[in-house]
Design a binder for these strands. Structure first.
Lengths: 351, 351
DNA sequence: CTGAAAGCGCTTACAG
DNA sequence: CTGAAAGCGCTTACAG
């Protein structure tokens, strides 16, 4: 079981070296020979033997560069955690990571960090890039250097990555809308807080939300979305303002950051726990309110898994030449309820 | 980077062979030497080099035995799919699977199939075992032969598996209850259809359901659960009977098989789409009704992932001597709505 | 364009 | 109880 290069070499009357050249596309082989070798390799069902390859190539430490804008952002920090934990498991395969953390989407900082990573000789890159033309340019150059680039979570225009791992924001928003539809009566007034209407992801998310809510003869009074710019002070103001002007709101959808400010505003207005709230991302302020019963559901885009998948795809490529089946990989959005966090009294009680 | 046995041998003034003996616990080494070697290996941070090991040990084909009671059962078939797809990825590591399918929980059949698997020389086993003392006995013997046994989905008493992968039925049931609580008004009459009160998993599941429903001052009229024995004819009868005697039911929880019969009964009574239904497992009859809007939510225990995890754990052990962090691994239960199945009109529209 | 040899880090008989 | 040698399947210089 398991064809070797040696066997193919023997069959074709050449040396292993030649077979190696052909199968690894190193060139410098007479076309006829090449053809013959390819054919017999194919017919014998040759497959690379991973262990041998990685062994013979020497204990070359493969380095995966990581650049995540995790500074002070829980969601992105979770992406980084996922990446780090996946990297840990790769240690035995001589793969290590070099991680940089950028803050927000500071383009200059990211550019600089990318240069640093390249200087350290990475073989692959996982990044949550700023959607900026200079970044695109640099990532394109990196790709042209033969380094696979996996983009995580934040889509970037005009750049073809090795792979993309993230959310399908529209479908994800639909799930939120589908849930909302089930917990408030027809005709209810529904409000939305969003980060910024300019962010492609956020916009698609509320489109999905609205579409699902209005589908199937759903008839709701949807208020114009308010913007938090992911900032607690701003969200406090806009939510306070919103609820004072619209006393009949039955449900608020927190589709983006600024959660704490939003909850504070509701609390101050005496509405926390009265108005239904659903919110994006399993981050601390949301989980706290979920457990208190002030939030009906939280939508989790599984940032940790996104990070893991990104590393998985890159390492599979480095180790086994395996190309991801799909270039674009969506992590499904999960609905989390209070009960999702139930911890059994004793583990013994389980099973 | 990366300490080798050779280096340790040099440091200790012995040969690689001796280092190999110590580090692999092959015995036959003078205690002092052994102690010294262990100490320096430890201090130098020695780690096995996977590629070299698997290469030197020869292209030994590792076989993982698989025994799933998937015959005619969609849920278990999904477990098998997960197992099979995970095995496919292991081909390049010279790991293959030998799969047997048992029907229901026929003990004699399973015993026979286990014998067959053992005769074929498996190095690991993934199984959905019948909860029977003879099976326990056999699995114990297999374990004693040094073969790791991973139990999937169906807990088995009095046997300590290498690992267990499945659902936490109680917590899972709580999630169903938490969802139900949000979609029916306080005081509603709620009915439950279960497979059999004797099945440990099912029983725990409805316990969790009831606990969550009644928690937080929830006050519902819970009817005594009816049993379907996973059979459509029986479920048709019991559900027909149930709804005719209890005209005020607001929600039915299909906690186990017999779905088609149940839906048929509701349809014949003119109640399909009127009474709310929530149901366990993302199997076809449930998904169909979910998409039609006759079911509010489906609870998915991710059988496919369970299968994948089982194989992952076994292969990590075979390949890298890695022991699972936890012996018991629960796959979280996911809430699926109609919207979870939304397919974008065109892929181009995405992102 | 092609071959022969050495080596990656480990394990496996074989000697002693 | 311990060592020396061969070999796993591939890649990498080095010759030609």
């Amino acid at each position: 079981m398991g064809v070797t290069m040696q066997e193919i070499a023997y069959m074709c009357g050449v040396s292993r070296g030649t077979v190696d050249r052909v199968l690894n596309n190193r060139g410098k082989v007479k076309p006829e020979t090449e053809e013959r070798i390819r054919a017999t390799a194919e017919s014998m069902g040759y497959r690379f033997h991973v262990s041998s390859q990685s062994l013979s190539v020497g204990r070359r430490q493969l380095k995966i560069g990581v650049l995540v804008n995790a500074a002070g952002h829980e969601y992105y920090s979770n992406i980084l955690s996922g990446i780090l934990s996946a990297l840990e498991e790769l240690y035995i395969y001589d793969i290590t990571g070099i991680s940089k953390i950028s803050s927000g989407l500071d383009v200059d900082q990211q550019l600089h960090q990318l240069d640093e990573l390249m200087a350290q000789g990475i073989s692959a890159l996982a990044i949550t890039p700023a959607n900026d033309s200079r970044i695109v340019e640099k990532l394109t150059r990196i790709t042209n250097d033969g380094i696979p680039v996996t983009v995580v979570s934040t889509p970037i225009n005009d750049f073809q990555p090795f792979s993309y791992v993230g959310s399908d924001h529209y479908c994800s928003g639909r799930i939120a809308g589908g849930f909302a539809r089930q917990i408030v009566p027809l005709g209810s007034e529904v409000a939305i807080m969003i980060g910024s209407l300019k962010m492609v992801g956020h916009e698609r998310r509320i489109e999905g939300f609205m579409d699902a809510l209005q589908s199937k003869g759903g008839d709701y009074r949807l208020l114009t979305p308010v913007q938090s710019f992911d900032d607690d002070v701003i969200s406090y103001k806009v939510i306070s303002n919103l609820v004072s002007r619209h006393p009949n709101i039955r449900l608020i959808f927190f589709a983006a950051g600024g959660y704490s400010g939003g909850y504070q505003a509701l609390d101050d207005a005496g509405l926390l726990g009265k108005i239904k709230v659903i919110a994006y991302d399993a981050v601390e302020p949301n989980i706290v309110q979920l457990k208190k019963g002030n939030v009906s559901a939280v939508f989790d885009q599984h940032p940790t898994k996104q990070g893991k998948h990104a590393i998985k795809q890159l390492s599979e490529y480095l180790l086994n030449h395996r190309i991801p089946e799909k270039r674009i990989n969506y992590e499904p959005t999960e609905i989390l309820l209070d009960e999702s966090f139930y911890v059994p009294v004793s583990e013994a009680e389980q099973k």
